[in-house]
Design a protein around this nucleic acid. Structure first.
Length: 930
RNA sequence: ACCCGGGUGGUGGAAUUGGUAGACACGCAGGACUUAAAAUCCUGUGGCUAGUAAUAGCUGUACGGGUUCAACUCCCGUCCCGGGUACCA
């Protein structure tokens, strides 16, 4: 006698998980004869906290897709691994003295055990760990590919550095100017000839090449976090403080590795059109890349010097009333007049003293200083003052702008604040109080542009500038190059060797450059990483040195999806055959927090590898789905201040209380289990309660799921009470995958009941297996095929919440039909198996099958059972449904119209008169207009 | 401030993208079984009004307007919630 009870579920789940492991049913081969399907989860960082119910949400979704596609005949790649390098393990090591390798391995084991209990079909033989030398050997190798590449703007592709060198030998850099226009050679030239190149010494040559490499070393303004002793990427800094820990962040110049991702800005932007990401995700990336089109304009100063600005609005050139430079520009010192020198220097030191947080907090604060210099407007020769102000950023465009107060809000504020007279070029479109950034106004006070719409004036001005040789069209991007050095221990060492202060790539045969073992994880403080403490390792010999930094975690994560294709290859990062076969990731599921970092770096690395001929695709992820976060539903108790007395929610306003988080596991709905509460913490053993209606009611709030809020629901606990299948289906049932939602266990009984009723289809009331081999009725087949079709559609659309509902409807119908026929149940077991694999396997076995249900084929939907022959047409009169008529679905429109006209209902409403119009939507509705 | 999402019963959420709003589930209420409880099963369940009742009528998808035979769905305006960006010229 077997009921679908807690004990039975446990037995079933253990039995099948064991069997799956023993028989290696999830092992995927690179069998190229079958069509492939690649379903990927964002691999987790194995934190010490373990899983809560929010973590597996995405994994359950991909697991369903993987199993479903397998039933559909695909060779499915569904791997899992660990993003194992990272800061938390290192900080744990500093605090507790446990080596990161040890704590990480331990965390991975806990993680794995928890994942296994949910019944995932990962092919664990393909597992990767980014901290494994056999893995990071190839992270280093790909880094060297970037180091050995430059971006040829003429072909819009990465090419190898050796090709660049041969070009330089023939023609210098005439056709390939420095990507960063600021760079000048020691002789203050920005270009060089073939003869120049040949005359350069080795150090200069390497310095030049460094300006082109996609992975390059340079002194850059970095986000320095003193507390963490490390540099942070832009995306790791939120509101001027560090993403982890919230420590203050300052700007600091340091020699750092960077990836020249800006060269790929256009391709990263264009690539978005070809891939299936959500609109918001594409939007975030587009925003981050921040393309804007405009013009570069050169102004001559009264003293003869030149100043170039970037503007998106060249049409407003006659409205320029001043210029503003970023205070950091070298030009500032060159143009400042003697009488303004003191003032300017004062302002510069003020700017320097401001931290990032100050600046961000006071974005609207207007500061600035006049330099004494004037620029000449090339069109009307008007002289305008040149100011400096921190609202102009050195890192964007040319670090200089032309101020057009009537059209730009910031320029307007600036002009008003410093009493700079404002020129109006848009007539009554400018009210004197607020800037109007319109493109639609007609220009006035603008000489040859008068009477022209601003929008249309833009190309006219650009043409004119080009003709005069003082300007051209220009595209700018907000995105910066990606800082790639971290002053940390627990990461990939840079596979380079410094000679004469220049880095040289290590040879492939010497990779991996293994992370040396140490117990000293603290940084040396000066801005060098902890590896600098290992003098023997850093200093190879008198002339050769290593880099003391390591790569950010983005490194290992930027290509792991490629390694899964061929994880044990020790000759290449993956074989060409495997790469060509598995190709792009068909579906990638993960959190939206990776929008601007991980996803951009992964896209970049794939593009570079593609350009270098290693891949035949240049976008890694065909489709991306961002699963929503599952938030916690916290509970509070209210302690009367100074007493060990707790007052129920409704009465708390009568006392002076403090709200304390209470463990959600000892609260039923909102009602606190006071006995459990007293046992929860020793402090509360003698707690007293002031109840309302005999109950203690808690307060509640939706918050992030976190141990410190005591609102964490552990999946193990759900599995213990209901089983993994119920957990899986309930998480899907909770709502649309992409939506964030609070966890609430109260609805789980519905799913649990469903599984029991499914089980009961095959069992009689005594619990014995009981099914019939009779042929099913037409009605039963209709239920079956309708369900099969809906499930298929829902899974294709990642609409798992509605698929669970479809199963429930199906079971309701079959139960009321008392159907226990094999021909109906067997296909349903197959369809259910991606959602609830354990119960499906068990029932599959009870139906007499030896093989795993995984090797079954998804049943074919017989459309003939779905076609309705009659339809109940709702008859709506003036938009309101008044009656229903049963008619043949294929009845000609005219006949329906005649029947409607003849019907008594219509006559009642029209009082005998024929209606004006009868609209028929076949199979939907008949609408009568009187 | 700007750019994206979103707002549907007591609750989580459906609605074939313009065609009978509220599927499915939770909760609640009533009933059956039981000595009783739990479990299970059945019935009802947006609101208002009338009726003993089956039922009928009105109203209803944040708010105000519009287009349409027909609007949760499209357009205009307002409010609220979530996410992204942070002086990017």
């Amino acid at each position: 006698m077997t009921e679908y009870s807690k004990e039975e579920i446990k037995k079933i789940e253990e039995k099948w998980q064991q069997r799956w492991r023993d028989q290696q049913v999830y092992k995927t081969t690179n069998d190229t004869t079958k069509p492939k399907y690649y379903v990927l989860d964002m691999f987790p960082y194995p934190s010490g906290a373990g899983l809560h119910v929010g973590h597996p949400l995405g994994y359950i979704a991909t697991d369903i897709v993987a199993r479903f596609k397998r039933l559909k005949g695909y060779n499915v790649l569904h791997p899992m691994g660990y993003d194992a390098f990272g800061l938390p393990a290192e900080q744990y090591a500093i605090e507790h003295g446990v080596h990161p390798a040890i704590s990480t391995a331990k965390n991975i084991d806990t993680f794995r055990a928890q994942l296994d209990r949910i019944g995932f079909c990962y092919d664990w033989s393909r597992e990767v760990r980014t901290c494994d030398p056999q893995y990071y050997k190839w992270t280093q190798w790909i880094f060297l590919q970037l180091f050995d590449s430059w971006f040829n703007r003429n072909t819009q592709k990465a090419e190898s550095i050796s090709k660049l060198i041969s070009t330089f030998e023939i023609e210098g850099n005439a056709n390939h100017p420095f990507p960063n226009s600021e760079y000048v050679l020691p002789n203050s030239q920005t270009s060089f000839s073939s003869a120049d190149w040949k005359s350069f010494d080795e150090h200069t040559k390497q310095g030049v090449l460094m300006q082109y490499r996609l992975a390059y070393l340079a002194y850059t303004d970095v986000n320095w976090c003193e507390a963490l002793g490390t540099v942070l990427a832009n995306d790791e800094v939120i509101n001027g403080v560090s993403y982890r820990g919230g420590h203050p962040v300052m700007k600091k110049q340091m020699r750092q590795w960077s990836l020249r991702i800006t060269e790929y800005a256009e391709r990263l932007l264009k690539g978005l059109d070809e891939i299936d990401f959500s609109d918001s995700m594409k939007d975030i990336q587009r925003n981050w890349i921040g393309r804007s089109e405009g013009a570069k304009i050169k102004f001559i100063l009264t003293g003869g010097k030149e100043l170039t600005v970037f503007t998106t609005r060249p049409d407003t050139i006659f409205g320029v009333d001043f210029m503003v430079l970023a205070p950091e520009l070298d030009l500032v010192k060159q143009i400042t007049t003697a009488e303004h020198k003191e003032e300017v220097e004062k302002y510069l030191s003020y700017v320097e003293s401001r931290s990032e947080i100050d600046r961000m907090a006071e974005v609207k604060k207007i500061t600035g200083c006049f330099t004494g210099a004037y620029a000449i407007n090339p069109f009307n020769k008007r002289q305008v003052p040149i100011w400096i102000s921190e609202y102009v950023l050195a890192g964007y465009g040319t670090g200089a702008i032309m101020g057009v107060p009537c059209g730009d809000e910031r320029d307007h504020r600036f002009a008003k604040h410093f009493n700079i007279p404002i020129t109006n070029i848009i007539g009554d479109q400018y009210d004197g109080k607020e800037a109007n950034p319109t493109y639609e106004a007609t220009l006035s006070n603008s000489a040859f542009l008068n009477g022209i719409k601003m929008k249309e004036a833009i190309p006219i001005v650009i043409d004119k500038l080009a003709e005069m040789g003082i300007g051209e069209k220009q595209v700018n991007y907000k995105m910066r190059d990606a800082g790639w050095s971290r002053q940390r221990y627990w990461g990939e060492p840079f596979p380079v060797i410094f000679r004469d202060d220049m880095p040289y790539a290590m040879e492939e045969k010497d990779l991996p450059l293994e992370l040396p073992d140490t117990n000293e994880f603290k940084s040396s403080g000066s801005g060098e990483g902890p590896l600098a403490n290992l003098k023997d390792w850093i200093q190879i010999n008198a002339n050769e040195k290593r880099d003391s930094n390591t790569m950010p975690t983005h490194g290992g994560a930027a290509w792991y999806f490629l390694r899964y294709m061929d994880p044990h290859n020790d000759k290449e990062f993956a074989s060409r055959e495997a790469l060509d076969y598995w190709n792009q990731v068909d579906v990638y599921v993960g959190g939206s927090e990776h929008a601007v970092a991980h996803l951009l770096y992964a896209r970049l690395w794939v593009k570079v590898l593609h350009d270098q001929g290693y891949l035949n695709f240049d976008e890694p992820f065909k489709k991306l789905i961002n699963q929503g976060k599952i938030t916690g539903d916290s509970r509070f108790v209210y302690r009367i201040r100074g007493q060990n007395k707790f007052v129920s929610f409704g009465l708390k306003n009568q006392y002076d209380t403090d709200a304390l988080h209470v463990d959600v596991n000892i609260v039923n709905g909102l009602e606190l289990d006071t006995i459990q509460f007293q046992k929860w913490k020793p402090d509360f053993a003698n707690a007293e309660f002031i109840l309302e209606d005999g109950k203690y009611i808690c307060g509640s709030a939706i918050e992030k799921m976190s141990k410190s809020y005591f609102n964490v629901i552990n999946p193990d606990k759900i599995i213990e009470n209901y089983g993994a299948d119920t957990l899986r289906m309930y998480e899907m049932f909770l709502g649309p995958l992409e939506q964030s939602k609070p966890w609430n266990t109260s609805g789980i009984d519905g799913v649990y009941k469903f599984l029991r009723r499914f089980w009961n289809l095959l069992h009689d009331t005594t619990g014995a297996v009981n099914f019939s081999d009779d042929s099913p009725s037409k009605e039963e087949l209709k239920v079956l095929h309708k369900t099969l079709k809906k499930i298929e559609q829902d899974v294709e659309h990642f609409s798992f919440n509605t698929s669970v509902s479809e199963f429930m409807i199906c079971i309701n119908e079959l139960t009321s039909l008392k159907c226990n026929k094999r021909a109906v149940i067997e296909p349903l077991v197959i369809a259910l198996s991606p959602f609830a694999p354990h119960i499906a396997e068990e029932l599959w076995e009870k139906l007499g099958h030896q093989d795993t249900v995984l090797n079954a084929t998804y049943p074919k939907v017989e459309e003939k059972y779905l076609i309705e022959s009659t339809f109940e047409y709702p008859i709506s009169i003036n938009g309101k449904v008044r009656a229903k008529m049963n008619m043949a679905l294929d009845m000609p429109k005219e006949d329906i119209q005649k029947m409607v006209l003849a019907s008594e209902i219509i006559m009642k409403w029209t009082k005998g008169k024929p209606p004006k119009k009868v609209i028929i939507v076949p199979g939907k509705i008949v609408n009568v207009v009187l």
